[in-house]
């Protein structure tokens, strides 16, 4: 469903992604690990359509379409979702209102009917229950004054409501206590289905105990330098990224 080929991206004239290739088939969960500054968040942003990233080479196809030619809100309507590494605060905008506006904008773009306040409330109640998120968060402004962990839970809650086809989770597990980690994993596992794909960016193999990936990639210096099954994450945890540099000299800077 997602085919990234030889992707080169630069920001402010600086090359960040340098020939990244990656393919995700429907139903698969891919994990991406890699050192700080390797370009993991950059990849997430480019896939979601953030401005300011120059794609200098390569292509990205999503469900048979040229993803890069779509506006970010069109990508969202077609099922691309990015859980932010640093979720953004929008003061004064009610969290529920925000999410309903988002869902209805997407539904409208897909030619589906919009949900009224009651239908939406019912939907959120269901999702909250399975994710054991306190509904207090719903009445507050979007991420305003949320703790780090609450922000991450809120991202997962949004994902659960929006039900994307392709979900990119950028370090959604960072800074979470063990219960919250289970919430995140639960959110992903519940959505797992033969049509959906996941790209899970993480620094910790612990998350992968709960979300078992089909493939683990190592992203270093703007490229995928190693791919393998879930045991790769364990090996990395044991040996660190130096291990890859030794095995593939010149791959990582």
């Amino acid at each position: 469903m997602l085919e990234i080929e030889n992707l080169h991206v630069s920001v402010a004239g600086k090359a960040i992604l340098k020939g990244l290739s990656l393919a995700i088939r429907p139903g698969e969960v891919h994990a991406i690990m890699g050192p700080n500054g390797a370009g993991k968040s950059t990849l997430g942003h480019v896939l979601a359509g953030r401005e300011g990233y120059d794609v200098t080479q390569g292509s990205v196809r999503y469900l048979g379409e040229d993803l890069l030619s779509l506006a970010p809100e069109e990508r969202a309507a077609k099922g691309v979702f990015l859980a932010f590494q640093y979720p953004v605060e929008i003061p004064g905008v009610n969290n529920t209102y925000f999410l309903r506006t988002a869902l209805n904008a997407q539904r409208k773009a897909r030619g589906e009917n919009e949900l009224d306040a009651m239908q939406f409330l019912k939907l959120t109640r269901e999702k909250l229950k399975v994710l054991s998120i306190s509904d207090e968060l719903l009445h507050r402004a979007v991420n305003e004054g949320f703790s780090g962990g609450e922000k991450k839970r809120n991202e997962i809650f949004q994902m659960a409501v929006l039900e994307p086809r392709l979900a990119i989770l950028d370090e959604t597990d960072s800074g979470l206590d063990i219960d919250a980690l289970k919430t995140v994993a639960e959110g992903v596992n519940r959505l797992r289905s033969p049509e959906r794909g996941f790209l899970v960016i993480t620094h910790y193999q612990r998350l992968l105990d709960y979300i078992v990936p089909d493939v683990v990639h190592v992203l270093a210096d703007g490229r995928i330098v190693e791919s393998g099954d879930k045991s790769l994450a364990l090996t990395l945890e044991e040996h660190g990224y130096a291990w890859i540099k030794e095995r593939k000299p010149g791959a990582a800077a």
Partner: peptide, 10 residues
């Protein structure tokens, strides 16, 4: 803030 909204389909 803008990108956050856009990425949600707004």
């Amino acid at each position: 803030q803008l990108f956050y909204c856009l990425s949600r389909g707004i």
